[in-house]
Design a protein around this nucleic acid. Structure first.
Length: 747
DNA sequence: GCTATCTTGAAT
DNA sequence: TTCAAGATAGCT
């Protein structure tokens, strides 16, 4: 383990003059820090230290951003800092800079931005010290046990196995993810045997031993590692484009090891769903350093401890979801963003930042390389490669030499459909099943039928709160709105005419039912949010597919994440048309990414997978390009379309969104906002709207938006900086909930 | 003239 | 965001 130099030992930023004015980021709608006088009886705090200050008639916790000589306000109008909460800076200057950049770029109040980068306990003013948490570890006898002897108690075996990896013990929430279906029982059994004991843990010891070494890298992987290694020590952005199963994670691990050897820390960002216990375990087994995990499932205490262990330089690796991009560190070495195309990196409410983009800026500020990995990179990143801004390495070989699946379009116009399944697809499934293989069907629609309709009068079940139809769920006999969560029992008869009701269209439930009819005796698994709601049920469905019990698996986009099924030889995409004609210009990109990701789940070396895509538009140019040329050809064509239409990444957009229960309020406010913007005469910025949002009414609120578009990023931001601070004072601003969404990804 | 509710402006 | 002063509606 490299020498650990804690933040406390680092030289402080220059000592502020005692008369200096503290500029403090406080929670509230302030685009700039507020000015305070130094505290009366203690030394003046410096940048990065938390302070308690008076704001109105209450006390709030803020962070000193910088110390200035003067204030725009008269000195006697300033209040002194009430209390300094940190002896040393909690956030270092480069992180403060990143936070200020973020606040400006996303036009969000700086105090809210800083606040959201802090663990909850620090936001509340609690001391920045690690706590002690109850955990469980193996006893001496426990360490001598072989999990294999517990074959009759698989959950105990899993627990034992996990505890062996962590000599310092596991906390209850870490145990949560180990065995499927609860850990209390198995843990009790292990404690009764005297193999496990309770203990208190302050933090993981400095040196954890790697218990596994990685496999030999192939040529592509080696080349990728070398390409990124050459970039160490300065800013550079590199795309790792690797088909599913090509071993991107091994490249990450090798690079992490190189950075650790050089005494540096590594930050790894993953999409929400990808941060599985298996991934964390793999990292812990392979790396010679504590691995701090940061995600929303932690308790406040655990989150603070993980955060501090990175900030103090204790953990060499931090792996986390979106908000981890703001974790402070002391020896920045490398940032990795896995599945960089994933839209969950963009926060969809409040401070609407894009963690991947912030990560790139962070790498630039820290002067370190950043690696973006994906099998299906975003068009933004591919455009940056084309412009020469990003480097790129490709991984083309799949594990075990599996070849890429063959894709084919199935023209639905010449097919009879049974519950969304064409004869052509059913026949092909039969062949594959007869050959002993498995089939996987993708339909991005859960429930039984997306519409419940009256066969007599045409009445359809609509959500009372949204401009949307309610989806019929057969399993529990209810109808529910997938947009707001509203649900009720499925009416027995048409409320309008008393006629009989039926389902229009297909969801996964209905397709699974139809498949059961077509393939009697074949076990069918379903993978969607409904079928995996119960804890452990996701794992049990996956196990049943891997063990071969299920021969057919039908599911939603959950299929696209992480699980590989080597025995699957046929992938059916039931409805490719959804993404083709959407009003959202990113729909096609998302559909192509999903299709490629789902297709990537299948196949093995001796039996390449086959992908059948059902469509009513087999001549659609983008779809054809995707099928004939693969994702890269698709991306090239899609980028050409975007360029011709002047859309991102060839233009930059920002949305002003507004919503209210009163139908006219959003439009009126946006109209005023538009006028205000035009009065500023922004240079080279186009204004579109106000226009109703794609689904105008949602959860009882009417929604509308105004779009700003510019080919020039500086021009767009100049306009935003002048305009956004005016918005709150506009007539009607308090009658709506409004938000600025810079680089909006969903329209 | 009273209270309950809404609107508005300000916070350093 | 949170707070409170001022404005307004509805009522006794």
């Amino acid at each position: 383990m490299q020498s650990v130099k804690s933040l406390e030992e680092r030289p402080l930023t220059s000592k502020p003059a005692p008369s200096g004015i503290c500029r403090v980021a406080v929670p509230g709608p302030f685009m700039e820090p507020l000015d305070y006088l130094p505290p009366r009886n203690s030394p003046s705090p410096g940048p990065g230290q938390r302070v308690r200050v008076g704001l109105g008639r209450r006390d709030v916790v803020g962070v000193v951003i910088d110390v200035a000589g003067t204030s725009t306000l008269a000195r006697e109008r300033l209040r002194p800092v009430r209390e300094v909460l940190d002896d040393t800076p909690l956030l270092n200057p480069s992180l403060l800079r990143l936070l200020c950049w973020s606040a400006d770029y996303y036009q969000h109040p700086v105090g809210e931005v800083v606040q959201q980068a802090l663990p909850v306990l620090l936001r509340q003013g609690k001391p920045a010290r690690p706590g002690r948490t109850l955990c469980y570890r193996l006893t001496g006898t426990g360490r001598e046990q072989d999990p294999a002897t517990l074959s009759r108690a698989p959950r105990q075996a899993a627990l034992l196995d996990a505890l062996k990896d962590c000599p310092e013990g596991l906390t209850p929430s870490e145990l949560e993810s180990v065995p499927p279906g609860g850990w209390h029982g198995p843990l009790r059994a292990l404690r009764d045997k005297g193999w496990v004991e309770a203990c208190e843990r302050e933090r993981a010891p400095a040196g954890t031993a790697a218990v596994e070494t990685g496999p030999e890298l192939n040529l592509d992987q080696t080349a990728a590692v070398e390409a990124v290694r050459a970039l160490f020590g300065s800013f550079s952005c590199h795309l790792l484009q690797g088909v599913t199963g090509s071993g991107k994670t091994e490249v990450y691990l090798q690079l992490i090891c190189l950075a650790l050897d050089a005494g540096q820390q590594v930050l790894v960002l993953v999409p929400e769903i990808a941060l599985t216990p298996q991934l964390v375990r793999r990292f812990r087994r392979r790396l010679d350093t504590p691995v701090a995990v940061l995600h929303s499932g932690l308790t406040d205490r655990e989150r603070l401890d993980a955060w501090l262990s990175v900030r103090d330089g204790h953990a060499g690796v931090a792996i986390g979801t979106r908000s981890a991009v703001y974790v402070p560190w002391v020896r920045p070495g490398l940032i990795i963003v896995d599945e960089e195309h994933d839209t969950s990196y963009k926060q969809h409410e409040g401070f609407r930042y894009h963690a991947r983009d912030v990560a790139v800026m962070r790498a630039r500020m820290e002067e370190i390389p950043i690696l973006l990995g994906s099998a299906t990179p975003s068009l933004e990143s591919l455009a940056n490669v084309a412009r020469g801004q990003y480097g790129r390495s490709r991984l083309t070989t799949r594990a075990g030499g599996a070849s890429a699946p063959r894709a084919e379009l199935l023209d639905l116009r010449r097919q009879t459909l049974d519950e969304g399944l064409s004869t052509g697809l059913l026949q092909r499934m039969e062949q594959h099943l007869a050959g002993g293989a498995q089939c996987l069907l993708f339909l991005n629609r859960r429930g039984y039928a997306p519409t419940l309709i009256c066969h007599v009068c045409g009445w359809v079940a609509e959500c009372p709160r949204c401009d949307a139809r309610m989806t019929w769920h057969h399993g529990d006999g209810r109808i529910r709105c997938h947009h707001c969560g509203h649900e009720k029992p499925r009416p027995a008869r048409c409320p309008s005419c008393g006629g009989g009701l039926g389902g229009l269209g297909e969801g996964t439930e209905r397709v699974a039912q139809a498949l059961a009819r077509h393939f009697p005796g074949v076990s069918i698994g379903r993978l969607d949010r409904d079928s995996t709601r119960r804890k452990g049920s996701l794992e049990s469905v996956l196990d049943d597919v891997r063990s071969g019990r299920h021969r057919i698996l039908v599911g939603t986009q959950m299929l696209a994440k992480g699980h590989h099924f080597p025995e699957v030889s046929l992938v059916g995409i039931l409805d490719a048309d959804q993404g083709l004609f959407s009003a959202d210009f990113r729909a096609a990109e998302r559909m192509a990414q999903l299709m490629i990701q789902v297709a990537g789940r299948a196949g093995r070396a001796d039996r390449p997978g086959e992908v059948l895509i059902q469509t009513h538009h087999p001549d659609h140019p983008l779809l054809r390009t995707l099928v004939e040329g693969g994702y890269e050809a698709f991306a090239e064509a899609a980028l050409a379309e975007r360029r011709a239409a002047g859309l991102p990444p060839f233009a930059h957009i920002a949305l002003l969104r507004a919503e209210a229960t009163a139908a006219a309020a959003p439009h009126d406010f946006l109209q005023a906002a538009r006028a205000a913007l035009q009065a500023l005469r922004p240079d080279s910025v186009d204004i579109w709207g106000p226009a109703p949002s794609l689904m105008e009414r949602r959860a009882g609120r009417y929604r509308a938006q105004l779009m700003l578009q510019s080919a020039s990023r500086p021009a767009l931001h100049r306009a935003l900086r002048a305009w956004v601070p005016e918005l709150a004072h506009l007539p009607g601003a308090r009658k709506v909930r409004w938000a600025v969404d810079v680089d909006a990804i969903e329209l």
